[in-house]
Design a protein around this nucleic acid. Structure first.
Lengths: 339, 339
DNA sequence: TTGTACGCGTTATCAT
DNA sequence: ATGATAACGCGTACAA
């Protein structure tokens, strides 16, 4: 009878029997350890091929008490900036033999916490999270279990473990000061509701401080639902107050800003004279626009790279710096007035 | 002395001892199985809390001979279309208790094959791959091990297991016929080199067939290096032949088309009169453009949803259809001439 | 309702 | 250079 149409996978034992050696010899040969004669190794690897033997990662993780898995938590994939950071990170991580267990949180701390619970069952070697604002349970579990943890994209005095990011408060402030110096006095911000994206909130705090210090109108915060970036920009523009309209709008990111600019021009406004448009991140989108956008360029690729390196160092017992600030670069563009 | 600053994690055994019950009672209580009195369960769960017990997924996977892990392979994350498909998929999958092991291949079949080898060590419950063109080794391994496999984004007569996608050849043909009927006769295509993206190649084949049947100039294929989408569009436009310039350009996708259009207009051309611009996918970008782009809308979200459902059905023993075609929708826009 | 014995596939450790 | 044995933490099967 057919042997119950099930997966039939070879184990070390199968290989050992067929090769007429012990389990340990196979194990050593497969892992490329010393202490196996060249002839034996050849023979074993030969059998491994024939039997299509694939080591069982679960068994290995079990006996070694932790796995070659790394948990990776991102807010969303609908945003090139995270893809950018990932690019730098994933390669480094995978070359070191780790695999990534990925989740997206949609900026929901609860979701993140639930996923963490699920993740910990796999005894991951490390965890990478976006931002530094997490559910208290997550912090305490990761700390308590002493799991190497990398927080990326933001900085804090008290990271869970190690942290590589930019100072969003300072970036917001620098951007605000620049724009204020250009003469804009009625600022608005278009982005998610307060509380959804802690990094956005910090940048807004920086903007507020910048404009308050020169006695301008207070910054108006316009809320748009998470959606396609270009649509969000359009919705953000539509939501601007008609009377006493702002003279400059800071958008959550460049793509949203572009959507807002399109909407503004369709509504008959002239950028930057009637309305200044400011983005964030310095995406490559800028390079194709007729007029480059005023924005703040963030070191995304580098954050990923540096973060991954520090984490790997941590995994091999070397203590990396707990906190790494990376610099942003102001990009004055033509979507705000000159001078 | 400090107990070697290492992870100290509670096991079932620890819980059992503290709760004064057997291992099995704990196991049952934790998994919510029947056969445990309410009082015992309360007591056990109480101890679980205190000890911060988290079941070991590796041990579980080992004894059950396969894990609650699903492998997921995507070409890139720098493309909203994959994020779209994922959105529909991941939720469904995660609610069923699975976690995703993600990779990106950068359209490299070799990379995909290597990753698959690594993945199989985890004894995943299922594998999801993009497209239907894979390394022969991958096909045979997945088939040989009888692993539930979902191929998404494309269709074929001979899927590894199950398959949900669109017919790229037909989509290309339909788009080509539409544009040809508008009177364009010198078509070009801007995208990756032939062989890199099999789905793009199929669409190109459809375009070629459409234009050949009306005896127009043959379609010129312009190659651009993978890069930021907007930049690729710009580069694609720059690479168009100056003499006997094409009168319509099909781009790999909408974002690239947008970059191309910007470049064309900066070069002084009028769209759609001097040059027709055609995208692919029907991204939301279109909704904010002053003139919507001519494109073919793809059912990305739906592919993800349907695919995930079929896969879950497969995992619970129900046989879903092997092959599911989903329809595309032609979106005539204003970046090609009317009539 | 609860408990006991065994095995899952691997590696560490200690022989030989 | 090679092998025997004992874990690792859990679930299945059966017994009480």
């Amino acid at each position: 009878m057919a042997k119950n149409s099930t997966v039939c996978r070879a184990t070390i034992k199968d290989v050992a029997e067929k090769a007429n050696v012990s389990l340990m010899t196979v194990s050593r040969a497969v892992r490329g350890l010393n202490g196996v004669s060249e002839t034996t190794r050849q023979c074993v690897l030969q059998v491994v091929q024939e039997l299509n033997y694939v080591p069982n990662g679960n068994a290995r993780a079990l006996v070694q008490a932790n796995s070659k898995l790394i948990g990776l938590s991102l807010p969303t994939l609908f945003n090139d900036v995270f893809a950018d950071a990932l690019l730098g990170m994933r390669r480094t991580i995978e070359q070191a033999g780790y695999s990534c267990l990925v989740q997206t949180t949609d900026y929901d701390t609860e979701r993140e916490a639930k996923w963490t619970d699920q993740l910990l069952e796999w005894r991951p070697a490390a965890v990478i999270m976006t931002g530094v604002d997490h559910h208290a349970r997550v912090r305490s579990k990761l700390r308590g279990d002493n799991i190497p943890t990398l927080e990326i994209w933001d900085v804090t005095d008290d990271p869970i473990d190690i942290c590589v990011g930019i100072d969003h408060l300072a970036a917001g402030h620098e951007l605000g000061v620049h724009v204020a110096q250009l003469g804009y006095r009625k600022p608005a911000f278009v982005g998610p509701p307060e509380g959804d994206d802690p990094r956005a909130d910090k940048r807004v705090a920086g903007l507020i401080r910048a404009f308050r210090s020169i006695g301008s109108d207070p910054l108006q915060r316009i809320t748009v639902e998470p959606n396609n970036a270009f649509l969000m920009g359009q919705q953000g523009f539509d939501a601007l107050p008609q009377t006493n309209r702002p003279d400059v709008v800071f958008f959550l990111n460049d793509h949203i800003a572009f959507g807002g600019m399109m909407a503004a021009e369709r509504a008959g406004l002239t950028v930057p004279n009637d309305l200044g448009i400011v983005g964030f991140n310095g995406l490559d989108l800028n390079h194709v626009l007729a007029r480059p956008m005023t924005t703040m360029s963030t070191p995304r690729r580098q954050m990923g790279l540096v973060g991954a390196r520090h984490l790997l160092a941590r995994l091999s017992g070397i203590a990396p710096p707990r906190n790494t600030h990376l610099p942003c670069t102001l990009c004055p563009g033509q979507t705000t007035r000159a001078q």
